[in-house]
């Protein structure tokens, strides 16, 4: 299967860092997931082949790490921490607020495929609690209002992208009409 050039360059650089091939597995899985969205059967077979592992061994590893998933997730993975430091500063309210707003529960994905909500364990933002991560970005000292703004920004970003795709499509349409004409 095909990964991006960036992935390949990173993979090629990483493997020789270790005396055993499989050592590169965990970070490689995360990078592959970032690219594909989840760890599909195809990704698993490909990485197993590259690192001289069985698919079973790769699955054993994937299922151990909480960030790795074999199921598709939304474009924005909203990870709300409710662990102790966040708990005492309203982390659960943030989670409940997101759940109501998005209409999904823990590990649920919105029907438009934009958001996946996840209650997560401590993300290392205790002194800036409550906190959440959207994909890899930290959002700290959250209030429900601040959370709304974060979600709105995500929406706007998604819409902008959609617009861009549409305009490319309509440009393509125009071009094809012209060439036909």
């Amino acid at each position: 299967m095909k990964f991006s050039e960036e992935f390949e360059a990173r993979f090629a650089e990483m493997v020789p860092h270790y005396p055993t091939k499989r050592s590169a597995l965990v970070p490689t899985l995360l990078y592959a997931q970032d690219e594909v969205g989840f760890l599909s059967d195809e990704v698993i077979a490909e990485l197993a082949g590259r690192l001289d592992l069985t698919e079973l061994e790769v699955r054993n590893v994937i299922s151990y790490y909480s960030m790795l998933t074999t199921k598709p997730r939304g474009k924005f993975n909203l990870q709300v921490c409710t662990n102790i430091s966040c708990l005492v500063r309203g982390g659960e309210e943030i989670l409940q607020h997101c759940a109501k707003k998005l209409g999904v529960g823990h590990k649920g994905t919105t029907p438009d495929g934009l958001f996946t909500l996840e209650e997560v364990e401590c993300i290392g933002a205790c002194s800036w609690a409550p906190a959440a991560q959207v994909n890899y970005d930290f959002h700290e000292n959250l209030t429900t209002e601040k959370m709304d703004r974060v979600l709105d920004k995500c929406l706007a970003q998604a819409q902008e992208q959609l617009q861009r795709i549409k305009s490319v499509d309509s440009l393509a349409d125009t071009l094809s009409q012209r060439s036909e004409g």
């Binding site: 069985t54 698919e55 079973l56 061994e57 699955r59 054993n60 299922s63 151990y64």
Partner: peptide, 20 residues
């Protein structure tokens, strides 16, 4: 043969066969 593995973790840990 290496056909069995351990998947998930904690109380969800489970013995898993090689073909899912």
């Amino acid at each position: 043969v290496w056909a069995l593995g351990v998947q998930n973790r904690g109380v969800s840990s489970i013995i898993a066969p090689n073909k899912e």
